[in-house]
Write a protein that binds this DNA or RNA. Sequence first.
DNA 1: CTGAAAGCGCTTACAG
DNA 2: CTGAAAGCGCTTACAG
Lengths: 354, 354
Amino acid sequence: MRKRVTIKDIAEEAGVSTGTVHRAIYGKKGVTEEVRQRILDICAKRGYQTNTAASALKRGTVRIAAAFPGPDTNNRFFYDNVWRGFRRQIAELHDYSLEIVELPYYAGTMNDQAAELEACYERYQGELDALITVGHFNAACRQVVRKYVDHGIPVFLACDDTPDCGRIACVQANYEITGRIVAELISSQLPAGSAVLLCAGDVLIPSHYRTVLGFEDYIRENKLDLTVIKIHGYDNADELRSRLMEALINHPEIRGAFSVSARLSVLLADLVAKMNRADEIRVIASDLFQETIQNMEAGIVKNIIYKDPESQAYLATKVMSEYLLKAQKPLNDIQYVESRVIFRSSLSLYTEDR
Amino acid sequence: MRKRVTIKDIAEEAGVSTGTVHRAIYGKKGVTEEVRQRILDICAKRGYQTNTAASALKRGTVRIAAAFPGPDTNNRFFYDNVWRGFRRQIAELHDYSLEIVELPYYAGTMNDQAAELEACYERYQGELDALITVGHFNAACRQVVRKYVDHGIPVFLACDDTPDCGRIACVQANYEITGRIVAELISSQLPAGSAVLLCAGDVLIPSHYRTVLGFEDYIRENKLDLTVIKIHGYDNADELRSRLMEALINHPEIRGAFSVSARLSVLLADLVAKMNRADEIRVIASDLFQETIQNMEAGIVKNIIYKDPESQAYLATKVMSEYLLKAQKPLNDIQYVESRVIFRSSLSLYTEDR
DNA sequence: CTGAAAGCGCTTACAG
DNA sequence: CTGAAAGCGCTTACAG
């Protein structure tokens, strides 16, 4: 293994100063086009790679704004893990002098996503080096994000995507595939002619809608002899509960049940257990957290489909840092984290560190 | 977010030089115990964390030996991915001036694991900062590894463990859990009274043995009405093939089949397809590579259990680098990578980048 | 036992 | 347009 090649080696071979090499590499003004080309050629030939840690040492702080939903009883199933993944990646970047501006926001309040992003932009007068947030935007939010993008601040998205907002990249679950996987699993477990109860969540929430889409597509495309009883609803838990109960009573042929939402998985499992049908209905829950784990240990939930929000945020943050600190463009502007099926047998790998 | 606290800040507050702070932190001689304690207290109080990139800059090269099976038709299913995971982590550590000594080895030849480790030790006269290798040792290998350990070279294992060899940590799949997951999956898919054909591999290979153990334990503990027809064999493919064929002919009640080994999964799938029983037997294959993917696309293999050797090696290398570069001891001396069940629906997430 | 100083690879004013 | 020099945070001889 040869010694690493440094900016000094390049400078010597080119017969210029290290400052000039730096300007050439980063396309800064102050180098003749001819000299620049010569330097770039030498870099390529020698396989020069910037020591980004050394550059961070000198360069000073990079400021990153991170906006995810804040702690809140309704979304602790999901966004706690998002924050954890974000912070875990940031901790690994301790050497790169990052300044993190954490922006927890609360949908439906004065401090929603748009308001927090706006306030942050004002506070730092646009002196931000990157933004990472959840790509599920309302109109106001689209506008603020546009402002970031227009001022040259690179934007990265986690968990949900808005492809045309000018973001560099997004890391998320593939919801269609998630729905398909569950359909494939449950159809392999139920006898032909069974019915499946589908807690379809809110049609206006992309993750719900697309999971349902994948689920139904799989069943249709494979011409499976499986009836889907689809129940929408998300916010009004009481009303939803009574409609689910009605479906369970009217359809004794139900042998499987799947909730596309983490929160509704708890509701669904409770209901199936209360109606004493846990033995005859295979319940598949969404996402991994205390209640779904308990329901699985109790034998009510048979499998969990886990979208791994922590990995999504961890990877999105990693993609951002590689772009920012190492000038590496992501290979793909959308990166998917695979949704995994969890079995009771693998639960011990998860319960130990929670 | 406050400015980071540096060794200089600590030195000022303690009224000593930066050199003394350094000696205190790293327990080097040349500081009174009293001064050391005062410095350590200040570090703790101010939350000092070493900038490991800066220290790498000054410290110079760290030499790491990596020994995994080399390219070879018999193990390309597995160890190609191990090398890939190792190199991917190393590439991320570009800033830390590592010198990598790659030691591909070939079991059963002059250049087996023990010989390569021995040769490497001699060549560098013990001037190595760490070793990472596969923890499946024969007697000769145990001895060389002991030599590394005795000379203070930290050893890290991937994929297989030898807990008492003095290694710092191991990252691997949990084979028992892997076997249990497959048993749980297949038993949820087959009607009571079915039989399952188990390609059990070689009893002397720990990964085979333990996977079989987990599989059988699950079935026994849950008192499942499932007959397991277990066929051992690994090296002699022709002979194994005829025994498997015999089992398939004699047991028309077989409805599921599972191979604990990557290579045997191909054999098993071919056989089931040739005997025209792909529609009535659910085949579960081990590990993800061209042939299993094709067999899954063709509908012969219904699920794959994927132990993700790339992640195992990537993580093992990460654990090693954190120990070496950041002085972080692993939280746990064994870390498990979860084995995942792959469905046909998720295959597209894998096929794109292979 | 302790300090002053050099230098790792880079960036950034400053001077020319 | 280009170079010389300072300095980021650390480690390591060297001197005392």
